[in-house]
Amino acid sequence: MKRLADRPAFWGWLFITPWLAGFLGFTAGPMLASLWLSFYKYDLVNLEYVGLENYRRLPLDPLFWKALSNTFAYAFISVPLGVAGSLMIALLLNQKVRGIPLFRTLFYIPSLVPSVAAAILWQWVFNAENGALNLGLGFLGLPTPQWLQDERFTLPAFVLMSLWGVGGARMVIFLAGLQGISETYYEAARLDGASHRQQFWHVTLPLLSPVMFFNLVLGLIGAFQIFTQAYIMTGGGPNNASLFYAIYLFRTAFEQFKLGKASALAWVLFAILLVFTLIQFRASKKWVHYEGGEA
C-alpha cells in the first residue's frame, strides 16, 4: 500500500480542486438553483411556488417574442458575416507581403477597445446629424438614415458595428489554423494542376473546417448574448427595435426583480442555444473534415 501522497491520482485531484470547487459552487449549483427558481415567483421578499406558470406565461408576453426575434435576426446575420469577414482577413494576413505584423496589429485594434468605449464611439459614428457615417453617406449622395432612432435601421446598425471586431480573436484563430496547414498539401495539389481557386476550395477550406466550426458555434452563442452595446447605445429602443434577449432578461431580473420569470427566461435561452449547438454538431459531420480520417 503506497502512501496517499505517492499516488499521482491524489495529486491530480488536488491540483484540479480549485476548478472543481468553483464549478460546483459557481456553475453546477447555481444552474440547479436557477432551474428550481424558475418554478417560483420570487421578488427578493416573497417566494411562492407557481409550477410551470413562468414558462406558460412567456409566450403571452409580446416583449418575449420581440426580444427573441431581434436576437435571432442579429445572430443569424452577424455571425455568418462576421465569420466570413474574419476568414477573409486571415487569408489576407497569411499572404507573404511586407508589413504583415503592422497590419495584423491594425486589424486587431478594434477588439482591444473596451465594450463601453466602443459603444460610445459607435453611438457617435451613427449620430444622425454629425456622425461620421452619415456625413460620409451624405458626401456620396446616399440616404442618411436616423440609425439609432429609426427602428428599421437599428438592427442593421448593430450588425455593422459587430463587423468592426472581425479582426480580433476569431481572426487570430483562423490565422493560426491557416499557418498550421502543411505546405505539402499545396505542393501535392499544384502537382495535380490545381489552380489557386481550386486549392482554396479543396485544400484550405476543408482543412480549416474544424476552426470554422469552432468559430461558428462560439460566435452564435456569443451573439445570442449581445448586451452591452444595446444597453448603452439604445437601451433597447427605439420602440424595442433593439430589445435583445439579454436586455429583456436583465430588466426582468434586476429592474423588475421578477427573479423566477428571469430564471425561466435564462433556461429558455439555454435550451435554444443547446438545440442550435446540437444541430451544428450534427451538421458538422457532413462538412467538417478532421485530418487523420473520420472523427
Binding site: 464549478f23 459557481f26 447555481p30 436557477s34 452563442i221 427573479l259 433556461w267 435561452l269 442555444l273
Partner: peptide
C-alpha cells in the same frame, strides 16, 4: 470544463447574485 464555455452566463447569474 470545456463545455462550460458554451453555457450562457444568464443561467447562473441570478443564483450567484443571490
Amino acid at each position: 470544463m470545456i463545455s462550460t464555455m458554451l453555457l450562457p452566463g444568464q443561467v447562473t447569474m441570478i443564483p450567484v447574485y443571490l
